[in-house]
Protein backbone atom coordinates (compact mmCIF):
# COMPACT_ATOMS: atom_id res chain seq x y z
CA UNK A 1 0.00 0.00 0.00
CA UNK A 2 1.56 3.28 -1.04
CA UNK A 3 0.62 6.71 0.38
CA UNK A 4 -1.17 7.75 -2.76
CA UNK A 5 -3.28 4.64 -2.57
CA UNK A 6 -3.90 5.17 1.13
CA UNK A 7 -4.90 8.79 0.56
CA UNK A 8 -7.22 8.12 -2.32
CA UNK A 9 -8.76 4.87 -1.20
CA UNK A 10 -8.44 4.65 2.55
CA UNK A 11 -8.40 8.26 3.73
CA UNK A 12 -11.50 7.51 5.77
CA UNK A 13 -9.62 4.66 7.40
CA UNK A 14 -6.61 6.84 8.25
CA UNK A 15 -8.82 9.42 9.95
CA UNK A 16 -10.62 6.70 11.88
CA UNK A 17 -7.32 5.06 12.81
CA UNK A 18 -5.92 8.34 14.21
CA UNK A 19 -9.10 8.84 16.20
CA UNK A 20 -9.03 5.26 17.45
CA UNK A 21 -12.37 4.57 15.82
CA UNK A 22 -11.48 1.35 13.97
CA UNK A 23 -11.99 -2.38 14.36
CA UNK A 24 -9.11 -4.69 15.18
CA UNK A 25 -8.94 -5.82 11.61
CA UNK A 26 -8.84 -2.24 10.29
CA UNK A 27 -6.17 -1.29 12.80
CA UNK A 28 -3.99 -4.23 11.75
CA UNK A 29 -4.45 -3.29 8.15
CA UNK A 30 -3.25 0.30 8.68
CA UNK A 31 -0.32 -0.74 10.88
CA UNK A 32 0.77 -3.31 8.32
CA UNK A 33 0.77 -0.60 5.64
CA UNK A 34 2.78 1.70 7.91
CA UNK A 35 5.30 -1.06 8.59
CA UNK A 36 5.85 -1.82 4.92
CA UNK A 37 5.66 1.72 3.55
CA UNK A 38 7.61 4.66 5.00
CA UNK A 39 5.45 7.18 3.25
CA UNK A 40 2.30 5.70 4.76
CA UNK A 41 3.93 5.79 8.18
CA UNK A 42 4.92 9.46 7.67
CA UNK A 43 1.43 10.26 6.49
CA UNK A 44 -0.22 8.73 9.54
CA UNK A 45 2.30 10.11 12.04
CA UNK A 46 2.20 13.69 10.75
CA UNK A 47 -1.59 13.55 10.73
CA UNK A 48 -1.52 12.46 14.36
CA UNK A 49 0.81 15.35 15.27
CA UNK A 50 -1.43 17.81 13.47
CA UNK A 51 -4.40 16.54 15.43
CA UNK A 52 -2.44 17.01 18.66
CA UNK A 53 -1.69 20.62 17.74
CA UNK A 54 -5.33 21.27 16.88
CA UNK A 55 -6.52 19.72 20.11
CA UNK A 56 -4.14 21.95 22.06
CA UNK A 57 -5.99 25.07 20.99
CA UNK A 58 -7.50 26.64 24.10
CA UNK A 59 -11.22 26.91 24.60
CA UNK A 60 -12.64 30.27 23.65
CA UNK A 61 -14.07 32.25 26.58
CA UNK A 62 -17.66 33.37 26.19
CA UNK A 63 -17.71 37.16 25.66
CA UNK A 64 -21.26 37.65 26.94
CA UNK A 65 -24.58 35.94 27.53
CA UNK A 66 -26.68 35.08 24.50
CA UNK A 67 -30.04 34.61 26.22
CA UNK A 68 -32.88 35.96 24.13
CA UNK A 69 -35.03 38.92 25.07
CA UNK A 70 -38.76 39.19 24.45
CA UNK A 71 -38.16 41.92 21.88
CA UNK A 72 -35.99 39.67 19.73
CA UNK A 73 -38.72 37.10 19.23
CA UNK A 74 -41.84 39.08 20.12
CA UNK A 75 -43.86 37.97 17.10
CA UNK A 76 -43.19 34.26 17.63
CA UNK A 77 -43.86 34.53 21.35
CA UNK A 78 -47.19 36.20 20.72
CA UNK A 79 -48.20 33.53 18.24
CA UNK A 80 -47.13 30.64 20.46
CA UNK A 81 -48.70 32.07 23.59
CA UNK A 82 -51.98 32.61 21.78
CA UNK A 83 -51.88 29.00 20.59
CA UNK A 84 -50.73 27.48 23.85
CA UNK A 85 -53.35 25.96 26.13
CA UNK A 86 -54.03 27.95 29.25
CA UNK A 87 -52.04 26.80 32.28
CA UNK A 88 -55.27 25.84 33.98
CA UNK A 89 -56.26 23.56 31.13
CA UNK A 90 -52.78 22.18 30.84
CA UNK A 91 -52.33 21.11 34.44
CA UNK A 92 -55.45 21.02 36.51
CA UNK A 93 -54.77 22.45 39.95
CA UNK A 94 -54.76 19.97 42.80
CA UNK A 95 -58.17 19.55 44.33
CA UNK A 96 -58.42 21.51 47.52
CA UNK A 97 -60.42 19.98 50.33
CA UNK A 98 -64.00 21.22 50.23
CA UNK A 99 -64.71 24.12 52.55
CA UNK A 100 -67.19 23.68 55.34
CA UNK A 101 -70.37 25.79 55.12
CA UNK A 102 -69.04 27.91 57.99
CA UNK A 103 -65.79 28.59 56.10
CA UNK A 104 -67.75 29.47 52.98
CA UNK A 105 -69.94 31.80 55.03
CA UNK A 106 -66.87 33.47 56.56
CA UNK A 107 -65.28 33.87 53.15
CA UNK A 108 -68.52 35.33 51.85
CA UNK A 109 -68.59 37.83 54.71
CA UNK A 110 -64.95 38.72 54.35
CA UNK A 111 -65.29 39.46 50.65
CA UNK A 112 -65.78 42.96 49.29
CA UNK A 113 -64.16 46.33 49.65
CA UNK A 114 -62.58 46.70 53.09
CA UNK A 115 -63.49 50.37 53.76
CA UNK A 116 -67.12 49.93 52.82
CA UNK A 117 -67.32 46.69 54.73
CA UNK A 118 -66.03 48.44 57.83
CA UNK A 119 -68.60 51.21 57.34
CA UNK A 120 -71.33 48.57 57.13
CA UNK A 121 -70.06 46.96 60.32
CA UNK A 122 -70.10 50.32 62.10
CA UNK A 123 -73.67 50.91 60.95
CA UNK A 124 -74.60 47.45 62.25
CA UNK A 125 -73.12 48.24 65.67
CA UNK A 126 -75.05 51.53 65.80
CA UNK A 127 -78.19 49.62 64.83
CA UNK A 128 -77.77 47.29 67.78
CA UNK A 129 -77.17 50.20 70.14
CA UNK A 130 -80.26 52.02 68.92
CA UNK A 131 -82.31 48.87 69.31
CA UNK A 132 -81.14 48.33 72.88
CA UNK A 133 -81.83 51.96 73.73
CA UNK A 134 -85.31 51.73 72.20
CA UNK A 135 -86.17 48.59 74.15
CA UNK A 136 -84.92 50.21 77.35
CA UNK A 137 -87.03 53.26 76.72
CA UNK A 138 -90.11 51.19 76.00
CA UNK A 139 -89.63 49.28 79.24
CA UNK A 140 -89.35 52.49 81.21
CA UNK A 141 -92.45 53.85 79.62
CA UNK A 142 -94.77 50.86 80.03
CA UNK A 143 -93.11 49.38 83.14
CA UNK A 144 -93.76 45.91 84.54
CA UNK A 145 -95.81 45.60 87.85
CA UNK A 146 -92.94 44.09 89.77
CA UNK A 147 -90.51 46.65 88.51
CA UNK A 148 -92.83 49.47 89.41
CA UNK A 149 -93.42 48.06 92.91
CA UNK A 150 -89.70 47.80 93.56
CA UNK A 151 -89.09 51.24 92.27
CA UNK A 152 -91.84 52.85 94.24
CA UNK A 153 -91.29 51.07 97.50
CA UNK A 154 -87.86 52.64 97.61
CA UNK A 155 -89.03 56.09 96.51
CA UNK A 156 -89.98 58.67 99.17
CA UNK A 157 -93.36 60.35 98.61
CA UNK A 158 -94.67 60.97 95.10
CA UNK A 159 -94.19 57.40 93.85
CA UNK A 160 -95.86 56.24 97.06
CA UNK A 161 -99.11 57.81 95.95
CA UNK A 162 -98.88 55.94 92.69
CA UNK A 163 -98.43 52.66 94.47
CA UNK A 164 -101.42 53.40 96.67
CA UNK A 165 -103.45 54.02 93.59
CA UNK A 166 -102.27 50.81 92.09
CA UNK A 167 -102.92 48.99 95.34
CA UNK A 168 -106.41 50.46 95.47
CA UNK A 169 -107.14 49.39 91.96
CA UNK A 170 -105.88 45.94 92.51
CA UNK A 171 -107.79 45.55 95.77
CA UNK A 172 -110.95 46.54 93.99
CA UNK A 173 -110.42 44.05 91.31
CA UNK A 174 -109.52 40.96 93.27
CA UNK A 175 -108.73 42.09 96.85
CA UNK A 176 -105.69 39.81 97.08
CA UNK A 177 -102.72 42.10 96.69
CA UNK A 178 -100.50 42.59 99.72
CA UNK A 179 -97.80 45.15 99.24
CA UNK A 180 -95.08 45.28 101.84
CA UNK A 181 -94.79 48.65 103.57
CA UNK A 182 -91.60 50.47 103.00
CA UNK A 183 -89.40 51.74 105.78
CA UNK A 184 -90.99 55.17 105.39
CA UNK A 185 -94.37 53.65 106.22
CA UNK A 186 -93.79 52.99 109.91
CA UNK A 187 -96.82 55.03 110.80
CA UNK A 188 -98.98 52.86 108.65
CA UNK A 189 -97.53 49.75 110.18
CA UNK A 190 -98.37 51.08 113.65
CA UNK A 191 -101.83 51.87 112.54
CA UNK A 192 -102.27 48.39 111.28
CA UNK A 193 -101.01 47.04 114.56
CA UNK A 194 -103.49 49.18 116.47
CA UNK A 195 -106.32 48.28 114.26
CA UNK A 196 -105.70 44.59 114.71
CA UNK A 197 -104.77 41.93 112.14
CA UNK A 198 -107.94 42.06 110.14
CA UNK A 199 -107.86 40.70 106.61
CA UNK A 200 -109.67 43.72 105.31
CA UNK A 201 -107.17 46.03 106.88
CA UNK A 202 -104.33 44.08 105.42
CA UNK A 203 -105.77 44.66 102.00
CA UNK A 204 -105.36 48.40 102.36
CA UNK A 205 -102.19 48.34 104.37
CA UNK A 206 -100.47 50.82 102.09
CA UNK A 207 -102.13 54.19 101.85
CA UNK A 208 -101.47 57.79 101.23
CA UNK A 209 -100.29 60.03 104.01
CA UNK A 210 -103.60 61.87 104.31
CA UNK A 211 -105.46 58.66 104.47
CA UNK A 212 -103.22 57.36 107.20
CA UNK A 213 -103.87 60.46 109.29
CA UNK A 214 -107.55 59.97 108.99
CA UNK A 215 -107.31 56.33 109.82
CA UNK A 216 -105.07 56.93 112.82
CA UNK A 217 -107.75 59.02 114.43
CA UNK A 218 -110.49 56.42 113.95
CA UNK A 219 -108.64 53.23 114.14
CA UNK A 220 -108.75 52.64 117.89
CA UNK A 221 -112.51 52.86 118.15
CA UNK A 222 -113.90 52.02 114.73
CA UNK A 223 -111.73 49.57 112.95
CA UNK A 224 -114.52 48.27 110.77
CA UNK A 225 -115.66 51.72 109.74
CA UNK A 226 -112.18 52.67 108.89
CA UNK A 227 -112.00 49.69 106.71
CA UNK A 228 -115.16 50.76 104.94
CA UNK A 229 -113.86 54.25 104.34
CA UNK A 230 -110.56 53.10 102.98
CA UNK A 231 -111.62 52.23 99.48
CA UNK A 232 -113.26 55.59 98.95
CA UNK A 233 -110.35 57.52 100.35
CA UNK A 234 -107.95 55.29 98.47
CA UNK A 235 -109.66 56.24 95.29
CA UNK A 236 -109.87 59.90 96.12
CA UNK A 237 -106.35 60.50 97.45
CA UNK A 238 -104.50 59.27 94.38
CA UNK A 239 -106.69 61.36 92.23
CA UNK A 240 -105.59 64.39 94.16
CA UNK A 241 -101.94 63.60 94.10
CA UNK A 242 -102.06 62.38 90.48
CA UNK A 243 -103.14 65.84 89.38
CA UNK A 244 -99.75 67.22 90.28
CA UNK A 245 -97.92 64.31 88.67
CA UNK A 246 -100.03 63.90 85.58
CA UNK A 247 -98.71 66.93 83.78
CA UNK A 248 -95.09 65.87 84.55
CA UNK A 249 -95.59 62.30 83.41
CA UNK A 250 -97.33 63.49 80.27
CA UNK A 251 -94.32 65.57 79.44
CA UNK A 252 -92.06 62.62 80.07
CA UNK A 253 -94.31 60.39 77.98
CA UNK A 254 -94.29 62.85 75.13
CA UNK A 255 -90.54 63.17 75.11
CA UNK A 256 -90.24 59.38 75.32
CA UNK A 257 -92.59 59.02 72.38
CA UNK A 258 -90.53 61.44 70.36
CA UNK A 259 -87.37 59.56 71.28
CA UNK A 260 -88.96 56.25 70.39
CA UNK A 261 -90.00 57.58 67.02
CA UNK A 262 -86.53 58.91 66.40
CA UNK A 263 -85.03 55.57 67.37
CA UNK A 264 -87.41 53.70 65.15
CA UNK A 265 -86.58 55.80 62.10
CA UNK A 266 -82.90 55.68 62.91
CA UNK A 267 -83.12 51.91 63.12
CA UNK A 268 -84.77 51.66 59.73
CA UNK A 269 -82.18 53.98 58.23
CA UNK A 270 -79.35 52.00 59.77
CA UNK A 271 -80.72 48.70 58.46
CA UNK A 272 -80.88 50.21 55.00
CA UNK A 273 -77.36 51.64 55.40
CA UNK A 274 -75.92 48.28 56.46
CA UNK A 275 -77.45 46.51 53.48
CA UNK A 276 -76.50 49.25 51.00
CA UNK A 277 -72.92 49.57 52.24
CA UNK A 278 -72.35 45.84 52.23
CA UNK A 279 -73.78 45.40 48.74
CA UNK A 280 -71.78 48.36 47.48
CA UNK A 281 -68.60 46.88 48.96
CA UNK A 282 -69.21 43.63 47.07
CA UNK A 283 -69.92 45.45 43.81
CA UNK A 284 -66.83 47.64 44.17
CA UNK A 285 -64.59 44.71 44.96
CA UNK A 286 -65.90 42.78 41.96
CA UNK A 287 -65.37 45.85 39.78
CA UNK A 288 -61.75 46.25 40.91
CA UNK A 289 -61.04 42.54 40.28
CA UNK A 290 -62.44 42.83 36.76
Amino acid sequence: MNPQNLHSVDEELVAAYIDGDVTTEERQRVEAAMATDEQVAWEVNTMRQTVELLQDLPAVPLPRSFVLTEDQVADVLLERRSRAPTPAAQTPPPQEPADSPWQRFLRFLNGGDLALRNAAALAAVLLVLFYVAEVQLQQNQTGTPDGAGEQLSQAPSAPQAQVTAVGGDLSQSDGAVAVEPSSGDSQTADTEGNAGQDDDEAEFGVMSVGEQDQQTGDSAKQPVAAAEVKPESAAAAPAASADTQQSGSENVDNSNQVLLTVFRYARILLVLAVIALWLFSRVRSRGSRA
Partner: peptide, 19 residues
Protein backbone atom coordinates in the same frame (compact mmCIF):
# COMPACT_ATOMS: atom_id res chain seq x y z
CA UNK B 1 -45.77 27.18 24.09
CA UNK B 2 -44.09 30.58 24.23
CA UNK B 3 -42.03 30.14 27.37
CA UNK B 4 -38.90 32.14 26.59
CA UNK B 5 -37.33 31.39 29.96
CA UNK B 6 -37.39 27.69 29.15
CA UNK B 7 -35.65 28.30 25.83
CA UNK B 8 -33.08 30.52 27.51
CA UNK B 9 -32.11 27.61 29.73
CA UNK B 10 -31.21 25.76 26.55
CA UNK B 11 -29.32 28.83 25.35
CA UNK B 12 -27.30 28.91 28.56
CA UNK B 13 -26.51 25.22 28.19
CA UNK B 14 -25.28 25.46 24.59
CA UNK B 15 -23.95 28.99 24.18
CA UNK B 16 -20.40 27.95 25.10
CA UNK B 17 -20.28 25.17 22.53
CA UNK B 18 -21.92 27.35 19.91
CA UNK B 19 -19.57 30.25 20.44
Amino acid sequence: QGDLEAFNQLVIEYQGLGY
